[in-house]
Design a protein around this nucleic acid. Structure first.
Lengths: 231, 231
DNA sequence: TCTCCGGATCAAGAATTCGTAAAGACGAAC
DNA sequence: GTTCGTCTTTACGAATTCTTGATCCGGAGA
């Protein structure tokens, strides 16, 4: 499947536990990012926009509940707390602080995965306050709908074209090297195939640009890469 | 807590447990209705429209999971399973069947209440199209009655077709990936069986579309998934 | 003017992905 | 047991998408 699963952020200070969770999650189709501290977790939560977060409460640089409180200020991403503490108070305070679930260590992998699925089910049904629509000039990219419009006109992009455009749109105005684009869209084994880029950029220009021979938005940086002009 | 007057439906066959739960809930501001059988539970779920449901799995007239499956056909009311069984399988199958949480007896009242609060929080944030009829173009879907009409003409959908259509109709216009549709309709073990989708989409198009070879509503996004055109 | 080079363009055919039909498996109703 | 409806599985042609290679273009430098 090309649809590489959704990303789960694991916040946990003990390395063996992190490794264990990474193994369990990735064999079930999730992408995994890891953080060992609150600081790292806050950074990754904003950067990678995970679909769900697994949170250990005992972290070296502070209480996990602090992180949770911060997060709930701007995000509704589901959070499942993993803790060795089994006291009622701990559970209640975590749940009331905004956690969506609370699992006591040790737990079984099957249950964890099932509860993650529940969390993702909820997230999908939730009115997402995040705006996953990006607009650059006349181009509008709706990540959630997998939909692109130019001057309010729907245009159809193939999966590769869509991923290419998303990669460029993530940092509008900035040049992305051939290498960066190739690894992001085709994977790290294709970093040499720069002609893939040429062909697919041409195809995309035909759909997006008014005059594909004189592109206004999908610009070539000779010898370096491509960039999407910032509006 | 000031959760003034939301109703919780308790489905439990043992009278002492029912009494205990009623006491715990009502002293914390919930109204309580009780059912000791699946039949009674189905009746009360439709009649009283509870804000949440506590479900014991071992009932005299059948498995609680059957009730849960029925309920999920037309309602997103949060369900918390209360069970004496602590096996991983039991938890996973209940959660995958649509339960929002699973508590093993014995549990503490504080935790139960906290988890109910979580469930209600979720319910409030959910796109609550509790209006049981949805209309997209010429297609009208009656969730409670399991009925679909196209141009005011009744059409018959099989259970799987109906769930597929509901999944698509929940967010009209949006692309749902193969993975999403398969997990939602067939469960998480079937994420690889993309041919299920092809076969059942074809069957549904024959019933819904004027020209099944050129679909107007049930659209394919090659390499990604399917979507229901937004009217 | 010629050549070189990176990029653009085009078209063929390779590889995926889709749609469709048809047959077998399974369970429920009779 | 039989019949019926439904779901799964399989196979194959059609459609779409991707890769590949040939060719063209324009600027830089000899």
């Amino acid at each position: 499947m090309i649809d590489s699963g959704e990303t789960v952020l694991v916040v946990e200070d003990e390395a063996p536990m992190r490794k264990f969770l990474r193994a369990a999650l990735s064999t079930h189709g999730f992408a995994v990012t890891e953080a060992a501290t609150i600081a790292a977790a806050e950074h990754l939560a904003t950067e990678t926009r995970p679909a769900a977060i697994l949170l250990d409460l005992g972290l070296p640089d502070g209480d996990g509940l602090v992180f949770l409180a911060h997060l709930r200020g701007w995000s509704t991403t589901p959070v499942i707390v993993l803790s060795a503490r089994d006291r009622e108070d701990d559970k209640v305070s975590a749940l009331d602080a905004g956690a969506d679930d609370y699992l006591t260590k040790p737990f079984s992998v099957g249950e964890l995965l099932a509860r993650i699925r529940v969390a993702l089910r909820h997230a999908r049904a939730t009115v997402t306050t995040d705006e996953p629509v990006r607009a650059i000039g006349p181009i509008r990219i709706d990540l959630a709908r997998h939909e692109v419009t130019v001057d309010a006109q729907d245009i159809h992009l193939t999966p590769i074209e869509f991923r290419l455009l998303c990669a460029l749109a993530r940092q509008p105005g900035r040049v992305l090297t051939h290498r960066q684009l190739l690894t992001e869209v085709w994977g790290p084994n294709a970093v040499e195939q720069t002609h893939y880029l040429r062909v697919h950029m041409a195809a995309m220009r035909r759909k997006v640009e008014k005059d594909p021979a004189r592109p206004q938005w999908l610009l070539t940086e000779a010898g370096v890469g491509y960039r999407l002009r910032d509006a």
